[in-house]
Design a protein around this nucleic acid. Structure first.
Lengths: 231, 231
DNA sequence: TTACGCTATTTTGTATACAAAGCTACGAGC
DNA sequence: GCTCGTAGCTTTGTATACAAAATAGCGTAA
């Protein structure tokens, strides 16, 4: 059994990830006009899956579309980023707290459920991957790993609702993270271990506080860096 | 010029609203399996716009889809509803606060911008409509009016990011609201005027607190009613 | 009787073809 | 010379046709 991710995804999913990646890493700058036919020919597929991918990216906030007028890559105004961090802080404090409570419950009730254990193992792998990336100075790998870590915490919380909400804004978080990874990437990644430790210990108060701080630091770092530029 | 909403929408948008409505008001109970062909024939259109509508509803959390396995109407577990209220409280406290700040800024700087003024007038109309609905005991009209009110506050805040996030969960909010409208609909609607008053007065602390309370009350009411049923 | 495997049907995913709407550019009229 | 209207083109929206995957049902064998 090979690890998930190697299996070739469906065309729709593939182009969706590809386009999002192009937006996050700058190949498609904000304001760019994207046409369905161009993307279809570029990726060698029909317009139908391209349309679906664009609609999904629209829901994630990466592109904006108007009927019969096409799609353009969204901009990230600085104050919008601030709002995003604000919501994220509330959301992720909650996931961390619940994850810690659930961890404690798992151990209290004898054997942990296989679902919980799988999520926990996945998270361990992500942490190791991230540490390796930091050690090799491959900061370009961190944005995706970062979002997988935070979604992993949400999974661990057991709340499908919180997970779904976080997933909604995950793309934008990765986008912001990618623009600031050179600045705070290493330090930010280092904070992840202590969050996990608090969760494993069932210390929900610490888990919540550490996560809130973690997000808050990211926010401050981002705003310090970009609040004066105003692209 | 007739009010927006009377103009016949595009088929995709139309079926999307129709399906959502059917889910919210119970014609399509949670767990129901929905097939594209059935919906297509039902609404007399092709499968393509149906697919897009389903994908959008999936993003809103109304249906869940797996590749080649179809879509089913989502369930609303009670604890997921609690999470939703939690996020909503954080989100809407922020929109109310910003709306109040912005209102004060509009008046301080001489003449209000036409954009702000339009949003404010829209909100006034919604409030009147809601009051009329309450007076005539047409509680079935309240869910939609309620969500339009809260989105209106978000518009008034001027933060497109917060508005977009709220819009993401607006459907589910309406869904929960519809299940509890008989219980708390009238009382809940009455609280809206005081929130607007605080915003108009530029009293951001009160606006934030009133909104937080408003959402909190809804949460308590919902949980009191449904926490024991566990459908 | 029950469990396993195969086939047939259903349903989703994708490709191509056509219709409708918007945008651009050119030309006529003021 | 400028403006408004119109024709052509580009692009999105929708319909139909075909391919791939999964599920369900039936039959066979243990």
């Amino acid at each position: 059994m090979q690890p998930a991710g190697d299996e070739e995804a469906a065309p729709k999913q593939r182009v969706q990830d590809e386009i999002r990646r192009d937006i996050i890493f700058g190949s498609l700058p904000p304001g760019t006009r994207v046409t369905e036919t161009a993307l279809a020919t570029k990726y060698g597929i029909s317009r139908v899956p391209v349309r679906e991918a664009l609609r999904a990216l629209e829901a994630e906030g990466f592109v904006e579309s108007k009927p019969y007028a096409g799609s353009t890559v969204s901009k990230i105004p600085v104050d919008d980023a601030e709002d995003l961090f604000f919501v994220r802080e509330a959301l992720e404090s909650a996931t961390a707290r619940r994850a810690a409570r659930r961890a404690a419950a798992q151990f209290d009730s004898g054997a942990p459920s296989s679902e919980w254990w799988n999520a926990r193992k996945l998270l361990a792998g992500i942490l190791d991957e991230g540490d390796a990336a930091v050690a090799q100075n491959r900061l370009d790998l961190l944005p995706e790993l970062n979002i997988r870590f935070h979604l992993g915490i949400a999974e661990l919380s057991g709340s499908s609702s919180l997970t779904a909400l976080l997933r909604q804004i995950a793309g934008k978080i990765e986008w912001l993270y990618a623009t600031d990874v050179d600045n705070r990437g290493k330090e930010s990644w280092g904070e992840h271990r202590s969050i996990i430790a608090a969760i494993d210990a069932g210390n929900f108060a610490d888990a919540e506080k550490l996560m809130a701080n973690h997000v808050h630091q990211s926010k401050e770092g981002y705003l310090d860096r970009f609040s004066t530029e105003q692209s």
